[in-house]
C-alpha cells in the first residue's frame, strides 16, 4: 500500500519506512545511536529529497530516542546529570560547528573536508572500538598495561577543577570534561551533518569511563534533546519536515527501540561495543565505495549529508 508524502512530494510503499524505522530503532535501543548515518542515505535512495530526508529523520529520532530513553530510564540506565553536561557542551559545539561550515563554504572545499572527516572519524572510532572490545573479550593482559598508561591521564583528569560525582555512572570527573568532549562531538556532528551518537558513545565509554549500559541510555537522552532542536529549526527555517513520513518511520522505530533495549540487556557491554564497531566499519566501507566508484548521476538536489 502506497502513501503520498505531502512535503517530500512523493509516494512510498508504507512497509518500507516502517521496516526501516524498526531496524534503525533497534540499533538505537541497543547502542544509543540515533541512526541518522544509516537512515538518511537510505531515505535518499528511496527518492526522498535530501533536505526532507535529513529533517524528517531528526523528527523520527525524537520518537525513537524518547522510547529508548524511557525504556532505559525504567531500568536505571540514564545518567541525567552527565547527559545535561554533555548536552550543554554539545549545544555550544553545534554553534561553533555551524560557523565552521560557513567558513569552509566560503573557502570552497566544504564537501571535501566534511566527507574526509566523516570517513576518518568513522574509520578510527570503528577500528578502535573493534580492536578494544575484541581484546577485552579475549581477556588479554592488555588491561594492566593500559591501566599503567592511563594513570598519567587519570591523574591529569583528577587534577582538573570542579570535580563532581556522577552517581548513576559511578565515576567522578571534573564538570569541564563532559562539557568539553560534548562540545567536541557537537562541533564534528554539526560539520558532518549527523547527530553524533556514534562519536558520543565512544567518548562516554573510553574517556568518561561510564558503564556501557548507562552509556546507551544517557546517549539517547542527549540525542533526544538535540533532535528536538534540529526538528524545530528544520521545520521553521527550511519547511522540510514531512510529518507523514516521520509518522511511518516512528511507527517502526519506537517499537524497534524497545526491542533493542530488551536485547541490549541480554548482551554484555563488550558484545554491544563490538557489534556497534562492526556496523560503523561497514558504513565506513560503504562510504569509501560511494566516494571511489563512478556515480550513475552526476547531478543531485541540494542539501542533506
Amino acid at each position: 500500500m502506497y502513501l503520498y508524502l505531502p512535503v517530500a512530494l512523493t509516494s512510498i510503499n508504507i512497509l518500507i519506512p516502517i521496516g526501516l524505522g524498526l531496524a534503525v530503532g533497534l540499533l538505537s535501543g541497543l547502542f544509543g545511536v540515533g541512526g541518522g548515518f544509516l537512515m538518511t542515505p537510505l531515505l535518499i535512495m528511496l527518492g526522498i529529497p535530501a533536505t526532507v530526508a535529513a529533517a524528517t529523520d531528526s523528527n523520527q529520532i525524537v520518537a525513537a530516542s524518547t522510547s529508548g530513553t524511557y525504556a532505559h530510564w525504567k531500568v536505571g540506565n540514564v545518567d541525567f546529570k552527565m547527559g545535561l553536561y554533555l548536552l550543554a557542551g554539545g549545544f555550544i559545539g553545534g554553534l561553533i560547528g555551524v560557523q565552521g561550515i560557513k567558513i569552509l563554504n566560503t573557502m570552497g572545499n566544504a564537501d571535501f573536508v566534511i566527507k574526509i572527516t566523516y570517513v576518518l572519524m568513522l574509520g578510527i572510532v570503528g577500528t578502535y572500538m573493534f580492536i578494544e572490545s575484541l581484546l577485552s573479550m579475549k581477556k588479554k593482559k592488555v588491561e594492566e598495561v593500559k591501566a599503567e598508561k592511563e594513570s598519567g591521564i587519570t591523574r591529569f583528569l583528577k587534577s582538573l577543577p570542579l570535580q563532581t560525582h556522577f552517581e548513576k555512572s559511578g565515576v567522578t570527573h571534573s564538570a569541564i570534561l563532559p562539557v568539553v568532549f560534548g562540545g567536541f562531538v557537537g562541533i564534528l556532528a554539526a560539520i558532518m551533518g549527523v547527530g553524533g551518537g556514534f562519536l558520543m558513545v565512544p567518548v562516554m565509554v573510553y574517556i568518561l569511563r561510564m558503564p556501557m549500559h548507562v552509556v546507551v541510555g544517557t546517549s539517547l537522552f542527549q540525542i533526544l534533546f538535540n533532535c528536538i532542536e534540529v526538528t524545530f529549526l528544520q521545520a521553521y527555517t527550511n519547511h522540510t519536515v514531512d510529518f507523514m513520513l516521520a509518522v511511518l518511520l516512528l511507527l517502526g522505530s519506537t517499537v524497534g527501540a524497545q526491542i533493542g533495549t530488551v536485547f541490549g540487556r541480554k548482551l554484555k557491554g563488550e558484545q554491544l561495543k563490538i557489534i556497534l564497531a562492526v556496523i560503523v566499519l561497514v558504513v565506513t566501507v560503504k562510504i569509501i565505495f560511494e566516494l571511489t566508484l563512478s556515480p550513475t548521476l552526476l547531478l543531485a538536489q541540494g542539501g542533506g549529508h
Partner: peptide, 13 residues
C-alpha cells in the same frame, strides 16, 4: 511534529 514524536515514544514505552 515534536509533540507527536514525543507522544509516540512515550506511548509505545
Amino acid at each position: 511534529s515534536i509533540i507527536a514524536a514525543l507522544g509516540a515514544g512515550f506511548g509505545v514505552g
